[in-house]
Design a protein around this nucleic acid. Structure first.
Lengths: 125, 125
DNA sequence: CAGTGACATCGATATTGGTCAATGTGAAGC
DNA sequence: GCTTCACATTGACCAATATCGATGTCACTG
């Protein structure tokens, strides 16, 4: 009925006690300051408008701010606001050429963040 | 001085015009409703407290809510609020056993989201 | 050098969201 | 059945932020 593993009793009818000494409690996990910086990266992608902008940049390789307003359907100041946020998060980099600002994806930024999370494995394919 | 590629002029001194016909404009990118759902997933990880909780769950495999308050340093309602958000985003799943709720990571949820983004390549090693 | 176009910044507003005290709910234990 | 415990829910408060009109800045154009 009761199974014993490593000195800990496991019973099918009784729920185990988190504090029975058999559950070591939380270990590992991200240190607070690391969590802050990582969360900022994810928060930058946590807005639908920014996510669309980012995906358009990923798809196009390089794109001008003036080509974002239309597809995204937001005003110019709003687009500017969101590109700034993405750049601040280190996800994209901008280059001013003449009157236009061209945006590219910062290579490796997102994979780095995911690796820091200690995910078992990222996408196959 | 001027280079011609595919019928488009590229000049080192003059910045190119986004609307010269050589830049096709934005193509692809996430459809709005897909962006909404994806952004929700990222937004769930966009808070330092939730990110710490999620990383603790990833590290521990399974963890009780009562073991989160301490390391995270937030009140019980706040912890409950954040675990709800993570569960709502489909990143973790909870199981009630007796008085305690045990949380596990929903396998594959995050990689799916990243694949939808069409990232060039996920983390190497 | 005056005009125009692209983008950034500012100011204001409305909404969202994180936090906690207080309270509710449901399961164990006596 | 009463008490206790773990967790969820509610309500309120405050901070952060998404949005846009108005304005500023800077590069090119004529």
């Amino acid at each position: 009925m009761a199974r014993w593993i490593d000195g800990c009793q496991y019973n099918d009818t009784m729920p185990e006690d988190p504090d029975d000494g058999c559950h070591p409690g939380p270990t590992g996990g991200l240190p607070p300051e690391r969590a802050d910086s990582l969360a900022a990266t994810f928060a930058a992608l946590g807005d639908p408008v920014r996510l669309r902008i980012y995906s358009l940049i990923l798809a196009g390789g390089e794109i001008c701010s003036c080509h974002l307003e239309g597809p995204v359907g937001k005003s110019q100041p709003t687009i500017s606001h969101h590109t700034s946020k993405l750049a601040e998060a280190g996800l994209i980099v901008g280059e001013k050429r003449g009157r236009w600002t061209w945006w590219r994806a910062a290579p490796g930024r997102l994979p780095e963040s995911l690796a820091a999370l200690g995910l078992p494995r990222a996408t196959g394919r």
